[in-house]
Design a protein around this nucleic acid. Sequence first.
RNA 1: GGGCGAUUAGCUCAGUGGUAGAGCACUGGCCUCACAUGCCAGGGGUCACAGGUUCAAGUCCUGUAUCGCCCACCA
Length: 891
Amino acid sequence: MSSNENKQGGYDPSKFEEKWYAQWEEKGYFSADPSSDKPPYSIVIPPPNVTGSLHMGHALNITLQDVLIRYKRMDGFETLWMPGTDHAGIATQNVVEKMLAAEGTNREELGREKFIERVWKWKKESGGTIIHQLKRLGASCDWERERFTMDEGLSKAVREVFCKLYEQGLIYKDDYINNWCPRCHTAISDLEVEHEDTKGHLWHLRYPFADGSGNVVVATTRPETMLGDTAVAVHPEDERYKGMLGKKIILPVIGREIELIADTYCDPAFGTGAVKVTPAHDPNDFEMGNRHDLERIQVIGEDGTMTEAAGPYAGMDRYECRKSLVADLEEAGVLVKTDEHDHSVGHCYRCHTTIEPLISKQWFVRIKPMAERAIAAVRDGRTKIVPAHWEKTYFNWMENIRDWCISRQIWWGHRIPAYTCDECGEMIVARTAPVECKCGASKFAQETDVLDTWFSSGLWPIGTLGWPENTPELQKYFPTDVLITGFDIIFFWVARMLMQGLWFREEVPFKDVYIHALVLDEKGQKMSKSKGNVIDPLNIIDKFGADAFRFALVAFAAQGRNIKLSENRIEGYYRFTNKIWNASRFTMMNLEDFDTAKPQIPLAERSAADRWILTRFRDTAKTVRESLDGYFFNDAASAIYQFTWHELCDWYVEMAKRPLYASADPKARLSAQQTLIEVFDGLFRLMHPFMPFISEELWTALPWPAYLGEKPVTLVTASFPKPDELAGDDEALYRVELVKEVVGAIRNVRGEMNVPPSRRIKAIIQGPQKECGVLKEEVDFVGALCGADDISFIGADEPKPPKAAAAVAAGVEIFLPLEGLIDLDEERKRLAKEIEKLDIELKKVQGKLSNPNFVERAPEAVVAKDRARAEEIGRDLAKLQEGLARIDGNA
RNA sequence: GGGCGAUUAGCUCAGUGGUAGAGCACUGGCCUCACAUGCCAGGGGUCACAGGUUCAAGUCCUGUAUCGCCCACCA
């Protein structure tokens, strides 16, 4: 019968994950208490878009936060993990507009008020999706405090901030050429424009002088804008145009008269050196227009179609117009030539429509004074960015920051609190709607624009804690301890929170910013629906469980790297959870008769194996703490992985089988049982922040000796292992390392010789008294681990056994009688291989030692270490060579 | 145009001046009473290249190459 067929009680995360989460939440373990005396530890969640569903980026982001918050919660901090969602202005409006379209209507038909009601209704019904998904992942947020960027509190904070900034002269309204999305029908900020290199054309157009004295050739990538040209510019010192300045030019097609002007913006080296100037449709031209007081003629409208000013092309789509205009220009002989031309084209980051630079009245934040404070805060370390190289990116942007366009011509969002008097046109910016104007009138029209979503997300840390009120939460939890986010929103979000936090609270909003990797597909490409390479976290959780998935994410989260995610690698951690499950099963099976009333056996009376694993656990706990404290998440994960699999399972469990099995002495058995419980209790606590479900499930089933006191009700709030308070025994480390080395050497011979595990062997050990003494005492472990049931020791001067395979380890010589076991030729080859390896190493070490500079200048400890190593290799080599000689019968 | 990052085993990646590591894959042996989702053993590296600093460089410095990302209003 195959062992596959009778496996029972296998690991199945679906059987307990949701159960535990429901219980934790119900019992209120995640609730923060600002009145507590415990030291605070707080994190605010980067609020996912309310329209969103969980993707890999969220999964990583949330997992890292949950690891930290669970660690600190267990470690005695009063933790607050503030959850919530972002109203995501444009994105959400798009979603609801699509629904309306499906119903055959649109927002204009509905009207502003009804439309907003509709969005709220949608939010109520569907906005909770992602929250539910975060719970599946195990996120231990304080859900009772869940916030929304458009809830009452944040709306109040937004109005307060807007008004304050306005009063301080930092918000202004101005006509400016802006990034306009013809599909979303709104201006967007510079940051919201994504530039993409595009293969385009450079059209060269011949503009004739009005006096018939020739012409000037200009080049453009956007010929349709020529309809709005109001000048042609050349560099003032461009020899080619000497004496032509001020000449009139007849704009082809339109026939409008424009002038040849001089402006240093023009680069004489580019093309003909002459630039057509369209102030209404190009940011550079807009500036030039201001300098020369040129007319702004808008030929492209807000929806991307040509305006009346476009003459014969009015009403055409902008690209349709381009096509037809180029054809017309060619026919008219205006088109000189068309070159291939690569340039970068801006797109809306929400809908990917090509941006149209248009002039409109917008609200801006004069950002420099705020940026200066935020720069200083990072420079002097009040906020630390980890990994540090992101600081450069941050500084680079902050130092070149441009005013922030905060108004959006959409309906869903925080409506700008500016009111214009119907009578006198006076504008009032106020926290609440004004009732009376100074002209005596009482009718006002509120500004129709709403604020950029990031304007409110920038207030997230202070706003969710209650600002502008000075709440207990704000006092207890602000500044927050760490912000965890991806680098894609350093500018959008991190920088703005820093600026707003510093401006209004005069304190940094978080002490650390940890920037984590981006999650890519296994080929290193961004996951996107259009590429079809998206891995859905929920599918992964269904398949492998949240624990394996979380652990995989943490293990991949090395600082400063992107993560190439493949299902294969997650499966590897699923095997790890399975291993934990089975190791625990082994433990439970051997604890069936465990007497919980028996007192604790003192460490000194336990076996070397027991003392060793407890010591190794203590060291692992130390590594995990240090790694987490420095945000080296992957180091923490690999310490747990390494300890659990390769020390606890591979060595300790195997060693513990001796005392545990029936024939053993009862005290040794009890000692092993107590050790198993203590190690697993500690290990489950240690892994709980990473793998909350499996740890809670198995820990709950763990028998509880009376000497440990009352068992906590849950791991969620149980204490995190404190290495300083844990027992350790360095002598046990030495003993077990010695055993491991000797066992390793014997297994190596067996492995190389293909001796099957069922084949019992004899071993004879010769060596110094110290080592042999230890090995004699631990001989049961040695025998059990390498399949030898007859291990004997011989004195240093006794003759070495003939016809035996020889190995060296930790200063002792090991002889395995060859009798019927080993092929002489194979043994010869094996020894020769070992000798060669050591020989190479010896030469290397000797080379260093023979260099006088090394001996004189390197630290003594380093030199001493190499000397010892050289000696050791020399000794081992000699022994192996003797062994080889004996085989050949020469000894 | 500016900036940042990467280059280490077949693949994916750790690596904090002092004996080059892990997981997966590969080879051989095992269904040994927790686990074949497993156990034991093994093979596999000019640490991209060229200089430099140092007793000592995968690690620090300079340059080169290749790949990737970010920022930027070049008609």
